[in-house]
């Protein structure tokens, strides 16, 4: 398989790579705390997409028997369960971090990480 067809055949995985790197670049280069948390949300989303992609089978149907078409292959159910778990964990941690950020703004009057350094050395 040459490069182009790999990219098309594995498109979701390449999208995962791009989204992950975009999120990481926010973490590296941006200075605003809320923006940084958005970066983490992006990374989480990328990983969720990665997990779901690993469980996909060509021309499969969802692993639910209710009113499903007869005789089709099914996508792998385990990763979907794992992804559900990781989505809930993601929303929990980002909610908590956002409330931290709101409190930090109350104390420091800024959301710039360069100015939030009450502890160093």
């Amino acid at each position: 398989m040459n490069g182009g067809s790999v990219i098309i055949a594995h498109a979701p995985l390449f999208a995962v790579a791009v989204i992950f790197l975009l999120g990481l670049s926010i973490l590296f280069f941006k200075r605003n705390l809320i923006k940084i948390l958005m970066g983490i949300t992006l990374i989480e989303a990328a990983i969720n997409l990665f997990l779901v992609s690993t469980g996909y089978r060509m021309d499969a149907i969802a692993p639910i028997f209710t009113n499903a078409p007869e005789g089709a292959v099914m996508a792998l159910p385990t990763v979907q369960a794992l992804t559900l778990t990781s989505i809930v964990i993601g929303v929990a941690s980002s909610a908590m971090m956002l409330s931290f950020v709101m409190l930090i703004y109350r104390h420091y009057k800024t959301t710039n990480v360069n100015r939030i350094r009450g502890m160093k050395g």
Binding site: F28, V113, I116, R117, K120, G121
Partner: peptide
């Protein structure tokens, strides 16, 4: 050594990655 401990959290992330 001491200036490396900047107290900036994105620096921590940068170190880890």
């Amino acid at each position: 050594l001491v200036p490396l401990h900047t107290g900036i959290m994105t620096d921590y992330v940068l170190w880890m990655f």
